[in-house]
């Protein structure tokens, strides 16, 4: 759990032209978790993949927290407990989607992106695969924390394509990594300290197709005194107005000042930390 008070909000919208919403979002204050997953694949397979992704991720974290599930000692023993927790959960989610995909012809080729943040003490730990994004607004500046796993971004990374061209490119939706496509996939694990006043946005590609990074940052800065649920809706609405070709999802996370601890909590923390 985090030392900060954290506010979560999530909105998902089908967009203007899609028949189904293949995105799935999840926020859980007690787990300190926010997730966005953007499914792909015909039929309703995309929805299924993304819903498996978020639910297995959250459920696994919950189980590990309550002790119902143990992380095997051999699982990335060098990482910190929370990092292992979220990676373990992400790997299980991938395995669940992969096996479902293999189970039936309809689900074959289904997959999903996944971008999730788990808070621990004064750190945020993000797990990421695919082209959903995590933005961080700090001191009025917005940066993209995650790197898209798309062919276009691979080209950008190699200097073959400019970022501006990549945003317009047709291969933007060709992913180089996604959950459910392979038995074992590699997740990006990103850890960064959080600060009071930070705002994080987790979003599916629908959101950033309609709004540029600057536009997102601007809306966040403008709405900084509004409830974040409102800001979250505002973001999705704006993006839908501008583009709306895809499902749009956003999870907004705001770091509030560290809460004052009661004496009991202080004692509990003292004993928990040990001496």
């Amino acid at each position: 759990m985090s030392t900060f008070d954290i506010e979560f909000a999530a909105v998902t919208d089908i967009g203007k032209i899609r028949e189904k919403n293949e995105d799935n979002v999840l926020i859980s204050a007690d787990l300190g978790l926010g997730v966005v997953a953007d499914g792909m694949g015909g039929h309703s397979a995309g929805e299924i993949a993304s819903s498996i992704a978020v639910s297995v991720l959250a459920e696994t974290i919950r189980k590990i927290n309550t002790g119902a599930l143990q992380i095997p000692d051999t699982f990335l023993p060098k990482l910190a407990p929370t990092e292992r927790k979220i990676l373990m959960a992400a790997n299980l989610a991938n395995a669940a989607i992969y096996s479902t995909a293999q189970s039936s012809e309809i689900y074959k080729m289904m997959g999903t992106t996944l971008t999730g943040v788990l808070f621990d003490k004064d750190c945020a730990i993000a797990v990421h695969v695919g082209d959903s994004r995590l933005y961080l607004l700090r001191d009025g500046k917005i940066i993209q924390i995650t790197t898209d796993h798309s062919l276009a971004m691979e080209h950008v990374r190699r200097g073959l394509l400019s970022k501006a061209d990549a945003d317009k490119s047709k291969i933007q939706n060709v992913l180089t990594r996604a959950m459910g496509i392979k038995k074992n996939i590699e997740f990006d694990l990103l850890k960064f300290p959080i600060k009071e006043g930070d705002v994080m946005v987790l979003c599916s590609d629908g959101l950033y197709k309609g709004l540029t990074e600057e536009a997102i940052g601007k809306i966040l800065s403008q709405d900084k005194d509004f409830p974040i649920t409102k800001t979250c809706k505002h973001l999705v609405r704006k993006s839908n107005e501008k583009d709306g070709q895809d499902n749009i999802s956003a999870v907004l996370i705001k770091i509030l000042p560290a809460k004052k601890l009661t004496f009991g909590q202080r004692m509990r923390r003292f004993f928990r930390r040990g001496n």
Partner: peptide, 25 residues
């Protein structure tokens, strides 16, 4: 994070706005 937003120059590998990797421990 004092990353400048330079979409035009970002073509070069060296000037892509630092992603989260910078922030990793």
């Amino acid at each position: 994070p004092t990353i400048e937003l330079v979409p035009e120059k970002s073509v070069k590998t060296a000037t892509i706005p630092a992603s989260a990797n910078t922030i990793t421990a």
